[in-house]
């Protein structure tokens, strides 16, 4: 095989040719995938809203408005309505207290602030540890520990003589109201079990929930009476 000599014009020409072909094909692929990428981002947002505030019949994305939190984060609020009446809001909340980088959470609140459900949108926590936040704070039934796996678990428990306290509800935050429950990890004097070996992630996650709740209630007229309650609650934290 005869290679072209490494003269300057040859080299320059070759590199120009290769980079222009590469640039051209990338531009083409970018154009082709732009719409699907945007569509998948919208679909992800839609499915997160449906999960955290089920049962609405309006288009929450169309009625979306933004709120500024005390920390300076911009939160997106998606009002969910049925027959014109507000049944809850999905709030895209975030925190910068994650183990590595920001954590973005979509949290669904009833109009009074009770947590309906949540969905983790974006994070860079440790795989296998911090990532447990996806369903750690949901009721135990949600993590699939029933049926066959439950039987295997029972066997292992007997084998090692360990008693599981799966029955208690201390991991779950769904159905609780941050205004009345102290949603902090137990290490910080709260009532929520931290994720095993990922306390920082658990703290950060609860902070994102708190940001959503505080910002939303403080910006809602109906919650003016609740505001004092929140201030008290924040006072407890310090």
């Amino acid at each position: 095989m005869s290679k072209r000599a490494s003269t300057l014009p040859n080299m320059v020409l070759t590199l120009i040719l290769i980079t222009s072909v590469a640039g051209g094909s990338l531009g083409f692929i970018y154009q082709a995938t732009k719409a699907p990428i945007e569509a998948s981002a919208v679909a992800k947002q839609q499915s997160a809203i449906k999960l955290v505030v089920p049962g609405f019949d309006n288009d929450p994305a169309a009625e979306m408005y933004e709120l500024q939190s005390a920390e300076g984060f911009t939160l997106k609020v998606f009002p969910a309505k049925r027959d014109g009446e507000l049944i809850g809001v999905a709030i895209e909340s975030m925190t910068n207290r994650g183990f590595s980088g920001d954590i973005k959470v979509m949290v669904g609140l009833e109009p009074d602030g009770t947590i309906i459900n949540y969905e983790v949108l974006e994070h860079r926590e440790t795989p296998g540890l911090g990532t447990k936040m996806y369903d750690w704070f949901k009721p135990a039934d949600d993590d699939g520990a029933d049926g066959e796996v439950g039987a295997v678990r029972a066997f292992f428990d007997r084998l090692f003589g360990i008693s599981q306290d799966d029955g208690d509800d201390s991991k779950n935050i769904l159905g609780k109201n941050p205004g009345t429950s102290t949603l902090l990890v137990k290490q910080d004097g709260g009532e929520v079990d931290a994720i095993t070996a990922a306390t920082i992630t658990a703290r950060a996650f609860l902070h994102a929930i708190e940001v959503a709740y505080t910002t939303y209630t403080q910006n809602t007229d109906a919650a003016s009476s609740a505001t004092t309650q929140i201030e008290n609650w924040e006072g407890d934290e310090q």
Binding site: S2, R4, T7, A22, L26
Partner: peptide, 28 residues
């Protein structure tokens, strides 16, 4: 393209080719 590439610029050329395909994989 091996026949067209002068020896001295083969590594940069290969890297550009590889980076292009990686970016395509990423976007797709």
């Amino acid at each position: 393209i091996k026949g067209f590439i002068p020896d001295k610029v083969r590594i940069p050329s290969f890297i550009v080719v590889i980076a292009t395909f990686v970016t395509i994989v990423e976007m797709v």
